[in-house]
Design a protein around this nucleic acid. Sequence first.
DNA 1: ATGAAAGCGCTAACAT
DNA 2: ATGTTAGCGCTTTCAT
Lengths: 351, 351
Amino acid sequence: MARRRQSVTIKHVAADAGVSLQTVSRVINKEPNVRPEMLERVQASIDKLGYVPSIAAQRMSGSRSYLIMALNDRERTIADWRKREGTDWVDQMLLGGMLKCAEHGYRLIVELIDTHSDHIERELRAAIAALQPDGVILTPPHSQNPAILDLLDEHKISIARIGSLREGPGFRLTMDDDHAARLATEHLVALGHRRIGFIGGDPEYELSAWRVEGWKAAMADAGLDIDGLLTEGDFGYESGRAAAEQLLSAEVGATAIIGSADQLQAVMECARQRGLAVPRDLSLVSFDDTPIVRFAHPPLTAVHQPIAEVAEAAVELIIEQQRRKKPSTEPRIVTASLIVRESTGPAPGSA
Amino acid sequence: MARRRQSVTIKHVAADAGVSLQTVSRVINKEPNVRPEMLERVQASIDKLGYVPSIAAQRMSGSRSYLIMALNDRERTIADWRKREGTDWVDQMLLGGMLKCAEHGYRLIVELIDTHSDHIERELRAAIAALQPDGVILTPPHSQNPAILDLLDEHKISIARIGSLREGPGFRLTMDDDHAARLATEHLVALGHRRIGFIGGDPEYELSAWRVEGWKAAMADAGLDIDGLLTEGDFGYESGRAAAEQLLSAEVGATAIIGSADQLQAVMECARQRGLAVPRDLSLVSFDDTPIVRFAHPPLTAVHQPIAEVAEAAVELIIEQQRRKKPSTEPRIVTASLIVRESTGPAPGSA
DNA sequence: ATGAAAGCGCTAACAT
DNA sequence: ATGTTAGCGCTTTCAT
């Protein structure tokens, strides 16, 4: 393998423009103390030669790496990819995050690490050492993991935590799960439902609790009981199955159910077996607006989680911080909305 | 921003093991000329200190960057992401490519560039200069673009071309589109269909022609005419609409149609308007096995394109070449298969 | 088989 | 406002 060198370096530009390396560097990094005429001359040389700085060299000299790492849960992500059911969390992160990165000369690198691993710290350390990212975007459940947060903080790496409000280093971003659950519940209440079941998400995720709270609050506001209507879960199909058994039982008698996409798959299955039609006998609201939800029969009413927008905001915050601006450390809330489709209808027996 | 330094460097390891930097470097890179006892001693220090080399520094010193770029068509990819219909081409590339990269200490970086841009070369030059990737995985239509191929070749960057067999630098990989089209056609022939329509893909893609050839060959083998049964297209919905009009017209009278997922969406729409039921009156085979195809009603029989496997093979070839092994330059064919679902049935009026 | 020296492209710190 | 110097972490010569 031939020893590959940069074809156009800062030296070439400096020589071409007849200035020092440092001046070129200043221009590249938009630093002050460059006369406009110098700037123009240097910029002309840069354009002429088609010069683009090497991020490796920039990193080496102790400045930025222009790399942002998007950390996702290894097991879950790979499972989703293999299932091929269209879960597009990663795509939406790329859509929002990558494009925003590109605007500023950054790159987004997707990295997977295990949640339940004793060597989670070693894995992360290795990724940091190898890549030296300027920032890391954390998704649940990593976004609330103190081991991860502390490690990144020690290394002075910017952190954007999606789906976590817990104290700790880094910017916090949410999709307002509390509000979203409220919207979903109120939508059902307005349709006359009084027995609205809620299937919980993985309790390890902070946002699971927020959703429950939103649901509870909306139920309370409507003066409705919640006895027996809350079931445990973990986002997955199996947990949906168990929950459906309970919620659809005669004692509980739910006429509407809110849950994750996978859970509702199971609920629909269950409902079919019991001869319940959606939405005639049972209304459903999904907490994920994935393709599978939109192509379900009937298409499911769903919470639209603005993943791309959140990823974009996360990148923005990280880059701003790199530029020594001090972005607000208040949690950044990107609001989710409810997309009404055909899985929700009037409560059975309601006027 | 504090000047960030590597926490554990090769120096620390060298000091800890009581050897020179060079010896540590040799161990890292599995080079010869290290006594087993030295190797062991150094490896122990590496493990103890948790040392991981900085890829920036490795790149700077003129060796590898451990970065592989996956180049995708910007417009198409972003459109797919925004549509959120589950097209998981990028995910499958990550699944195959990223995991294989990880096995060898490489990273996969997704990069989008415009196809129809006069500054395509400038864009690519910039990406190369910034990242200095060791290899690039090209997907259609980039994989057959001479401007791209030459540029990468000049820079001595390994190339893996998916979906292109044209002469030129780089490894060539295909999913055997010819064979896949044949399988699809033969499946329909076996069901008694004699009027099997084919909606072409974007003619700019080499593989579009391969598919047509496979279909033509199978039709010829079965002794069937193809007059009026081949229509132009570009993979998109609109082209499917136009094609459906022609294929479903009285003169042509197709009882089965092969096309892309988006095209078949349009065909189904058209069929519904004409009161044609699938598969009773019309059989369909999709050339993409995306989620939307699997969740369609009825679920579509589809060609399964092993995207993850191809991406994995692409990464393997690139990494082998980096290691100065000389992988075969013969096209690498990863076979597609046919997944029979419910959109294909006996031809109307057939025994 | 091992080590020492030089340099990759760039920026921070320090002149001027 | 600009230039000079030193050094980032590593690998490639080139010695020994």
